[in-house]
Design a protein around this nucleic acid. Structure first.
Lengths: 159, 159
DNA sequence: TTTACTGCAAATATTTTGCAATATC
DNA sequence: GATATTGCAAAATATTTGCAGTAAA
């Protein structure tokens, strides 16, 4: 699907959600949604704030927090908490199924494609829990940090 | 394995870690480790602080934060960030493989056993990423909240 | 004896909230 | 016109940090 078509669909879903909940359709809300759907990876509020307001002031932090909560609630945006004490987000619709490799040392997050986990989860009996989405985080050391750690270990032994 | 044996093993591992890193073996650190291994579910720092200091002051919050970081770094404790802006933790050693069902509405977290995901992940090529552990979070509505949501929806329509 | 660790209180960082002005319905 | 939403600043919450006293090595 072309990017514009995706956004049209997402926009419609958001409208439906806003109407259903009795919320107002403000330009800020649509602008934020549109901006998020131009981003190709996960982001935090601070990044979103700066990239939206790069040229001139567009929205306040308070509105960002308010809006992103609506987007998460409407399942158009996924919220992650990767371990730093700052939430990360990413668009939910039409994003390829992927999991996150998180480096415990440098905090770097890498996304890798995955099509296996989904079927395993769907095969599970979750009692009557109504699943909306899932996140798989794999922790460990990235190539770079694993190298550094080995060097350090060697150095320590030598000393 | 009996609970005491588990703790002995964990204690030894912690000692090895502390010595390797040149950290001191303080009574507070061992007391916190022991206390954590008596807990059977995940917990946050505030809960840990209150349960340890229930009868009389034992450790400060600063020491808890300091110690738990060492425990996470030594892979004896797993850190979770479930979405609230407060970290949760759980013992890592000898805990049964499980995943977390998180209710997006009430925030309730339920653990369910799982032995399938592990093999799927192990079958994956993670380049040269050195895996230490993983966490699978499944989001949705718990039975209770799903019921409430339906009621609300019906009520709203009626109005 | 040296210096890492503890505990307290102050500082920081992220998110939430109160309130007046504004814009949607 | 009524009131939900915005933007700003202040408040709240979780975590980190500086520092003096204490204790491990």
């Amino acid at each position: 699907m072309a990017e514009e078509d995706i956004f049209e669909k997402v926009k419609q879903e958001f409208t439906t959600y806003l109407v259903a909940k009795g919320h107002r359709k403000t330009p800020e809300r649509y602008m934020i949604l549109k901006h998020i759907y131009t981003l190709d990876t996960h982001f935090d509020i601070d990044y979103l704030f700066n990239s939206i307001n790069a040229d001139r002031p567009m929205v306040s932090r308070a509105t960002l927090y308010n809006t992103i909560e609506l987007l998460v609630d409407s399942n158009l945006v996924i919220k992650h908490s990767f371990g730093s004490n700052m939430a990360h987000y990413e668009k939910a619709y039409n994003s390829e199924s992927h999991l996150h490799l998180i480096c415990s040392s440098c905090g770097d997050i890498k996304e890798i494609k995955d099509h296996d986990i989904k079927s395993v989860i769907q095969g599970k009996k979750l009692s009557k829990f109504a699943l909306t989405h899932y996140s798989l985080y794999i922790y460990g050391l990235c190539t770079k940090c694993a190298r550094t750690a080995n060097k350090k270990k060697t150095a320590a032994v030598k000393k």
